[in-house]
Structures are given as C-alpha cells and as structure tokens.
C-alpha cells in the first residue's frame, strides 16, 4: 500500500502535465462520449434517409437539408430568432433597472437579491405554468381590467405570441439580472465621481461610464437569455398553445409525433449554427474591446 502510494505520488508530481491529464481524463472522456460524439452523430443523421419508426436507414441523402430552406420552415426560424431577440431586449430593459436598484440599495439589498435568486432556482416549468394564472381569460389581469371597467369581454392573452414573449421574458429575467448585477458591483464608484467632477450629469455618467463598463455583463446575460429562448419549446407549448410554433417545437415534433429523426437533426444543426454565430459575434466583440490599440 505504502509502496504503491509512493509510486503514484512520484509519478503524478514528477510532471504536472501528466497529473493534469490524469485529472482531466474522466470528465473529458465522459463529455466526449455523451456530448461530442452524439453531436457528431446528429450531424451525420441530417444526411441519412428517414426510417418511418424513428431512426435512420443506411445511405446518404441531402433531402432534409434542402427542405430546411422551404418557406414553411424559414418562417419558423425567422419567428424564433425574432421572438428571441425581442425577448432578450425586453429582458434587458427590465433587468438593468433591477440590477441598478439592487446595487444602490443598502438596507434591502440582501432581500432584493434574494427575490431574484429565488426564481433563478425555481423550476422553469412551474414558473411558466404559474404565468397562466396571470394572463388567462379568468386571470388576474382580466379580472382587474374588467373591475376597473376598461374592458367588458376578457382580453385574449393566453395562446398568443404575446403570451409566449411574456413567458420568455419573465422566465429568463433572473439569468439576465445576475451577470449585470455582478458587473455593476465591480464598477469602481470613484470612476463615477471622476466623471461627475469632469462635468458629466447623471445620465451622461450612465452613458459614458456605467454602460460601457457593464457591457460584458449585459452581453453575458443576453447570451443566457437568447440561447435558451431560441431553443425553447416549453414556453411556446404551454403559453402559445399549438399556435406559436418555434424552431424548438419543430425539433421536438420530429422526434415525437412526426418521427422524422433526420429532418429533426437537420433542424438542430441549423439551430446550432445560429447559436454559434451568436457566440462568435460575442467573442469578436470581446476581442475588439480588450485588444490594446496602439497608435492613432
């Protein structure tokens, strides 16, 4: 036992690189088998003939990839991207003020933060379901509007694109608030005082100092909203009924009722490409912002 221990110790610590490889191996192998390889298979499935009962036949075809550019599916893609972008923007408009209020608060700071962290940890499914109570025909909003006398008939809100948008925004707001809050908290108050001493009133200080310095948090939060919103099918399923189809629903259908795995794989690839374009755009943005510029 002791000899083994000594041998192992010497083997590991003679080379930190060897030690690192040994430590990384289990997680690396796991992610290779259960993440990377499956993604690779998805990529090949997109070019396989379809099996009626799910799965594929041997052989190759481009029929599924060609089908992607049919207007029917392009409309869904367009709608998904648009809805996700708008949801991200609205989430930002709600989240930035929340983060600001938390950072500026003194006595209530812990509570205000807790009220964001709580939904962050609460089941997304439950929160989406709970939204129905607010916006259904007999929900609180309709009750209030009728009580005030603004409307007679209940306003149809559930099972509309607006409902899906609302669900996405409230669903993902906590994911946007926390990174913005983190970057706001790191902001040195002396910079704002310096800007004030140099003549910038409050909103100018926001535009010229606070906003550019918290942009990394905004970008991180936007990715955390945009990516899951783009791939979501739960929100559109529960709040949109079957009426607001997004690319996530389309993928889900191919693997459930439609049983068209190759086309589902092709759709997934398309979705992945859009997400990766977003990621690359973000990396580029990061790089141009951090790269030192020399000369004029």
């Amino acid at each position: 036992m002791t000899r083994f221990r000594t041998m192992l110790r010497d083997a590991l610590h003679r080379s930190p690189r060897f030690e690192a490889v040994v430590l990384l191996l289990p997680a690396g192998v796991w992610l290779a088998i259960f993440f990377a390889i499956p993604l690779g298979i998805v990529a090949t499935y997109a070019f396989r003939p379809r099996h009626i009962l799910g799965g594929v036949y041997p052989g190759w075809t481009t029929v599924h990839v060609v089908r992607l550019v049919e207007p029917l599916y392009l409309v869904v893609l367009q709608r998904s991207v648009l809805l996700s972008l708008v949801a991200t923007l609205l989430a930002l408009i709600v989240s930035y003020p929340i983060a600001l209020v938390i950072v500026r608060a003194t006595r209530w700071r812990a509570l205000l933060l807790f009220l964001v962290v709580l939904p962050f940890w609460t089941s997304f499914l439950v929160r989406t379901y709970a939204t129905i109570f607010l916006i259904r025909d007999t929900g609180l909003i309709n009750h209030l509007l009728q009580a005030v006398g603004v409307i007679r008939q209940p306003l149809r809100m559930l099972y509309t694109p607006g409902a899906v948008l609302f669900g996405l925004v409230t669903g993902f707001v906590p994911f946007m608030v926390l990174p913005i809050y983190a970057s706001l908290e790191k902001l040195d108050p002396a910079l704002l005082e310096a800007a004030e001493a140099l003549g910038a009133p409050e909103w100018r200080r926001f535009v010229r100092v606070t906003w550019p310095l918290t942009l990394p948090g905004v970008v991180a939060g936007s990715m955390l909203v945009f990516v899951p919103a783009l791939g979501s099918f739960l929100t559109s399923d529960l709040l949109g009924g079957a009426k607001v189809e997004l690319i996530g629903n389309l993928v889900q259908n191919q693997f459930t009722s439609a049983r068209n795995w190759p086309f589902g794989s092709a759709l997934s690839l398309l979705l992945l490409v859009v997400v990766m374009i977003g990621m690359l755009a973000r990396l580029r943005l990061d790089r141009t912002r951090t790269r030192p510029r020399r000369g004029t």
Binding site: L191, A197, G199
Partner: peptide
C-alpha cells in the same frame, strides 16, 4: 452645487482613470 458647478479639478486616490477609454 454639484462638483461640476464648482471651479475645481480633482485627482483621485487610485487615479480613477476610465479603463475603457484611452489616454486621449
């Protein structure tokens, strides 16, 4: 009066230079 309404300039303890802006 706000700081910028006073005839003052200020140098801060850790300089408080804006990290996102160049010297100019």
């Amino acid at each position: 009066k706000r700081p910028y309404q006073r005839p003052i300039g200020m140098v801060f303890q850790n300089y408080a230079l804006f990290p996102h802006l160049n010297v100019a």
